[in-house]
Amino acid sequence: MTDRFLLMGQNADLITRLDRLSKRAAWTFDQVTTPTGLVVELDHKRPAGIWWDLDASTLDTAIATMTLVRPQVHGPIIAFTTKITERIQRKLYQARVDDVVTFPFTDRVLRALIKQRLWLYQQVQDSTPKVLTKTASPRVITIGHWQVDYQNYRVLKNDLPVELTPKEFQLLSYLIDHRNQVLSRDQLVNGVWGYDILNTSRIVDIHISHLRDKLENDPHHPVHLLTVRGFGYKLAE
């Protein structure tokens, strides 16, 4: 099976080098150009790893985003940069980045590095014991014309299935668990993505918008997924 990576960056030279390297190693990659775009892509895809061009964003944004998505990425995160300091390296490794590669780099060495990291993650996954869990009791919540089946991760609207991404389902579930409560964007990020970090309000707004498009009869005049201006969002029954 071909390993597919996710590249965050716009550097033409880096893209060319990685494209040439990937063809030789029988890999492939998808490109995103913004940190928010990467977060959204991870809701739909499970890449073998992430390649991040540090010159394509500020360091604080890169670290915040990589910290946010690290639990979703079960493979290596490799950062590329034209300049590096001990402080930057320390902050990147604290964000659980696997490797920091500086320009210029040797294709053959980078290929060997990535292969080793893929092998290591595979060993960890193969050695993880399979835990038997008890079957959860059925739990279906009704909100207006929606039925949310927690056990089967399924949502119906007017008895018709609605396709949600895993993160959209998590966000909807969190809102339902706190229905009729006003939740700030920071609370939603912390509760759904698991990290209390800055510069993530856009991520919440995007996911709320997607939920409205899929669930509300009129996304521009929602009945349940409400905006509370100056505070955040709430789910009204």
Rank of each mutant, 00 (worst) to 15 (best):
R4L: 07
L6Y: 03
L6S: 06
N11C: 13
D13N: 10
R20G: 15
R20W: 15
L21P: 07
S22H: 04
K23Y: 11
A26T: 10
T28E: 10
G37K: 07
G37C: 08
P47F: 01
I50D: 06
W51E: 06
D53L: 00
T58E: 15
T58N: 15
T58Q: 14
D60C: 13
Q72N: 12
Q72H: 13
G75N: 06
I77W: 12
R96L: 13
R96D: 13
D98H: 06
D99K: 13
F103Y: 12
F103K: 12
F103G: 07
F105Q: 09
R111A: 14
L113K: 15
I114H: 10
Q116P: 02
Q122S: 14
V124D: 06
D126Q: 14
T128N: 14
T128R: 13
K130A: 15
L132G: 11
K134D: 11
I141K: 08
H145T: 10
P161K: 09
Q170A: 13
L171E: 06
L172Y: 01
I176Q: 02
H178C: 02
R179E: 03
R179H: 09
S184Q: 01
D186I: 05
Q187D: 01
V189Q: 10
N190I: 11
N190Q: 14
W193F: 15
W193L: 15
G194M: 15
D196I: 03
L198F: 09
I206S: 07
R212K: 04
L215S: 00
E216Q: 03
D218W: 03
P219V: 04
P219R: 07
H220T: 04
H221M: 10
H221S: 09
V223R: 04
R229V: 07
Y233P: 00
Y233I: 03
A236K: 15
E237I: 00
